[in-house]
Amino acid sequence: MHAHFGRAPFFVTVNVETMEYEAIPNPAASSTTGAGAQAAQLLVRNNVQAVAAGNVGPHATSVLQKAGIRVYVAREGTVREAVEALVHGQLEQQAEATMTGDSRKRRT
C-alpha cells in the first residue's frame, strides 16, 4: 500500500464478490498540484464504491465523500490483506460517508 493516495502509481479495483481485479495507472501521481483530487475523480469515473488507502489528503477525501465513496484506512500490507480486512469489517473508516452497501473496492 502506498502511503499517499494521490501520489500512488496505480490503483487496484477489486470486485469483492468475485475477487476479480484490475490495475488502473494513476496519471495524477506526477502532477504538480491537485493530485489527490484528480486521482479521486479517476476512481469516481471507475464507479468505485469504497477506497482503502494510506493517507488520503483533504482534496481527495472531499471528492470521494461528495461522490458517496467510503474511505478506509489501510496503511500496511498487501492489496489482498486490505481487501479481506475491509470485507471483514476490520478497517477503520477515515471519515463518515453517507452511503452503505458493498460490492467493489480498491487500493494502491
Binding site: 491537485g34 483530487a37 484528480q38 479521486a40 475523480q41 469516481v44 482534496h59 471528492v63 461528495k66 461522490a67
Partner: peptide
C-alpha cells in the same frame, strides 16, 4: 493547469 476543479456526477 492547477487541477483546482474536480467534476463528479
Amino acid at each position: 493547469p492547477q487541477h483546482a476543479l474536480s467534476v463528479i456526477p
